[in-house]
Design a protein around this nucleic acid. Structure first.
Lengths: 298, 298
DNA sequence: ATAATAGTGTCTTTCAGACAGTATAGT
DNA sequence: ACTATACTGTCTGAAAGACACTATTAT
């Protein structure tokens, strides 16, 4: 982006200024993207009549080198000098999953000076949602393993303290990530800080539980955003295949929100985001259900 | 944050690894923070009976050097190697306004490779809201002027096109910033991009209108966030003084949302976020109004 | 008295939550 | 026939929107 053509105090035009501009010897941080790649998959059931349950899954990579060697981390990597943050995010996503046309949204940028013991790393996190069909997981260079972990994130303790002017509000939540015999269980502490008339929540990691760097916190932030956004946007549909039943859609909402919904109310709520087809899903020992598609709102 | 103590493939412990770690000669981007500092001020009226109107104001700085010399830009600056992004934002805020206990929220990180003609600059934008009383504006080093501009941001054209499978949705909005005889007027184009079943809005600058770099877009993004958040959070109160009338509070909502609200409904809506006092504002030729304070929700 | 604002009451519509009911495939 | 799910109808209460009404001060 270039601007006008006047001269500055040293009598230089913009071209002259840029030609002599020395980007300097200032130390600069490294910039990376961290990817939260979510999907929802079926958990097969035993009973031939019962529908498969669903589970929210997150892709993690086992670190093959220091720091945090052997721990599980979010996929991600350095931003190249000639690509935008979003391009870097798409590139990482494609490298990890082989998928490219998915929902992608910038989440937050994490910039504490000591997030990474190697050097100053500023990292922008991205949330991506993909339909679980057609996923292809590759291991990337500096990681020896990539796995989908089942995600649970739940508040387990809340403390209100009010003595006179001093008020405290603390909330503890547990983030559990499970894959076969591997279980990661981090604890996060949320504190309501009040300064004067202003107050805001601060989150810290009480126990990383085997999750590398500050990634437990990033994951928690991502899940909170996902839970908020599923209520007032259509992002849930980026987790669905082309055709789906309303019960499947409801299960996706339930597994993300971590609570049960009433069928009749749910159907009323999503009625106009959804288009009926004349296909049916003929399953097991019960009434077949109509298949629907996503209806774009305009 | 340090992790475990095993050895990597080269037989190094974490300490050994970090001691030999060379942060490398990779080129790195510069990282900056850009500050959107909003406040709401009174616009004095002529009629002794009438209440003063309110205006939403944004702090801009006139660029004193290339690039974009003479244009108006968001205050901001480089992030030091030993401070977090948020610390940098607080520092810039304090430098510009002298205020420090204000609402501050990270907005978005802008990372297009060509945002700045000097070098690759990745910039995290922060939204801050301050009560207009007790503001103190200083000019900073590389800017010769800092001014509060009145903000207007409004959609002025909408185009739906539907021919068969090809659908387009374009929306144009104008961002106007006014200060005395200076008027900046940028035009932004929002396009609904649809790829397969996914769609999302993309925003581009049609006309920067005298606003430096990509700051018109950043400002527009900030206003949109402000408009959203004022509906479901209490951020409006960080624009209010300790004591305020409900009409003043309503005016703040109206000036941010750019629409009029019905008094009775507004009062019902904010009733439980607000605490009655026994003070009154005794003004001009009309009934005095009760003063309220913010009631913290717990 | 009047202008301008302060403040309240209530009607309607919409929507979320709860729950009870009917329908229908596969074994 | 039975099981598990598919799907619908309706009651309730809360909240949003619209609007009309009363109250009170400085000039």
């Amino acid at each position: 982006m270039s601007c006008d053509k006047p001269r500055n105090k040293m009598g230089l035009t913009e071209e002259e200024f840029l030609a002599q501009y020395d980007s300097g010897n200032y130390e600069r941080p490294s910039v990376t993207v961290d990817m939260l790649i979510f999907t929802v998959t079926d958990v097969e059931s035993d009973n031939y009549r019962k529908l498969p349950e669903k589970a929210l899954k997150l892709l993690l990579i086992k670190r093959g080198d220091h720091p945090c060697i052997g721990q599980w981390a979010l996929p991600g990597g350095f931003v190249n000098m000639d690509e935008s943050l979003e391009e870097a995010a798409y590139r990482e996503l494609k490298e990890e999953t082989g998928v490219d046309k998915v929902y992608l949204e910038q989440l937050y940028t994490w910039g504490d000076p000591d997030r990474d013991p190697r050097t100053r790393v500023i990292s922008t996190s991205y949330l991506s949602l993909t339909d679980s069909s057609g996923l292809d997981i590759k291991a990337s260079d500096d990681a020896d393993d990539a796995r989908w972990f089942t995600v649970t994130y739940r508040v387990f303790k809340e403390q209100k303290t009010m003595d006179g002017e001093n008020k405290t509000f603390e909330r503890f939540s547990r983030l559990t990530l499970q894959h076969e015999n591997e279980t990661l269980s981090a604890v996060l502490k949320h504190t309501l800080k009040t300064e004067g008339r202003l107050s805001r929540w601060e989150t810290s990691i009480e126990d990383p539980g085997g999750i590398a760097f500050d990634h437990a916190r990033i994951i928690a932030y991502g899940i909170e955003r996902l839970r908020n956004k599923i209520e007032y946007t259509d992002i849930a549909f980026s987790l669905m295949p082309r055709y789906f039943t309303l019960t499947e859609l409801q299960q996706v909402y339930e597994v993300i929100l971590d609570k049960e919904l009433l069928k009749a109310n749910f159907r009323r709520k999503i009625a106009n985001r959804v288009e009926e087809t004349n296909r049916y899903k003929k399953d097991a020992g019960h009434r077949p259900s109509k298949l629907y598609t996503y209806r774009q709102e305009f």
